[in-house]
Write a protein that binds this DNA or RNA. Structure first.
Lengths: 220, 220
DNA sequence: ATCCTAGACTTACCGTGTAAAGCCGGTGGA
DNA sequence: TCCACCGGCTTTACACGGTAAGTCTAGGAT
């Protein structure tokens, strides 16, 4: 087992890549560094991702976007899978609760791996994982009473808001630029309200409520 | 003028870099290629951006985020600046019109240079340009009658939605992945509504209206 | 004429992605 | 028992990327 068969797998590679991205940033994710972390030569990774780094990036995006993974990520790997309990069986909770839960879970997953955000931008979400989310959105908005023609735009708005909120938060928490502009009398309203708002979590919920209210009409 | 003094300037470098990004993608923006496009050796760029590529990236982000630039970009450079007519002089249009115009302009700028989106994610928007936008938002939402404590979250939600909508559109228009999932009976609602929604422009406006309605109460 | 300096050019180095070929242990048939 | 084969990792090699360091040239100041 020393030379060949070092126990590599796509799962392990992706997990280790994410650890590097989260800890040192996307730029630091190098095939050689990843190989080192996996106790393997860099080229060994190409046996599991023959199309190279781009393919690995795609797998990372899909891994992050998988809501089932987010739940199992924190918990210790108990061992066996759940076997036959795979079918979604038509969630009975009210539509808005389903959407809110999805939004919070997705936001949490993106925030946990915010270093990988640039990877998502130019990849089309056409995997089964992504389509499951869209299906969930469409069904919920239809159930909310929206006209069929309005459903896709509503789902797009919801997804836009969640991703955008994460980007907004990550941007605001980034390193300050070399020459930040002073908040002086040029920006009176900003100066007056500076730091008075709620934290990002509460702000997210507020905006989400507003968007859902605006999309589905009525006060809630 | 043949060897030195090739007429290089930060402006010219940024514009050429954006042309490369828009045309060939961010990955293709290399110092050597940029130098070739500017008819200059790559290292000459370091005289205008001594801190290297990261600094150039920051300048590109600021360039894109500048709303004044977006207007002047399409029009030919007439020559002289407007001189004393610099003060914003308290736009008299209604608050929602100002916000809507800003949103459409910002969206257009981001879409035009969508290849540079990954650069924005981890850069704090603390330049004068960014603060001007925030000031505009805060003032408008205050004018709309929001309680001061609600204004920052509303502004954050608006910015989130616009950026997120651009990301959503760019993602959906990206190259399909190698193994796209089929839209079969697993996704009945998606299959039924597939392609029935409005185009991205109209969907954006719809979502924006909904968000503003939800944020500021009332039907409009 | 001489020197200074800003800006551009040249060289060189190391880090990166990855193609291509090698190596090694296990496996299944003869 | 032997041997061909193959999956999985290693080795070697190359071209390209960012950029540090040094050099050159033109134009202005002395």
């Amino acid at each position: 087992m020393s030379r060949n068969n070092a126990g590599l797998s796509a799962e392990r590679i992706i997990a280790e890549a994410l650890r590097i991205i989260d800890g040192m940033g996307l730029r630091s994710l190098t095939m050689r560094r990843l190989g080192d972390a996996l106790q393997v030569e860099a080229m060994a990774i190409y046996h599991h991702f023959p199309l190279g780094k781009e393919q690995l990036f795609g797998a990372i995006v899909e891994y992050i976007s998988d809501p089932g993974r987010a739940a199992g990520e924190a918990a210790p790997p108990d061992g066996e899978d759940d076997g036959a309990a795979e079918e979604p069986e038509a969630d009975a909770r009210p539509w808005d609760e389903r959407l809110r839960d999805w939004a919070h879970d997705y936001r949490a997953a993106l925030l946990r791996h915010s270093g990988a955000l640039p990877l998502m931008i130019h990849r089309r979400p056409d995997t089964a994982t992504a389509l499951r989310s869209t299906e969930l959105h469409y069904a919920a908005f239809a159930e909310a009473g929206l006209a069929p023609a309005s459903v896709p735009a509503a789902a797009a708005a919801l997804d836009s808001y969640v991703v955008g909120a994460v980007v907004h938060q990550v941007r605001s928490e980034g390193l300050p630029s070399r020459e930040p502009a002073a908040i002086d009398r040029r920006f009176p309203t900003v100066a007056a309200l500076r730091g008075t708002g709620p934290g990002p979590d509460h702000a997210f919920t507020t905006g989400l409520d507003a968007l859902l209210r605006g999309l589905c009409g009525g006060p809630g």
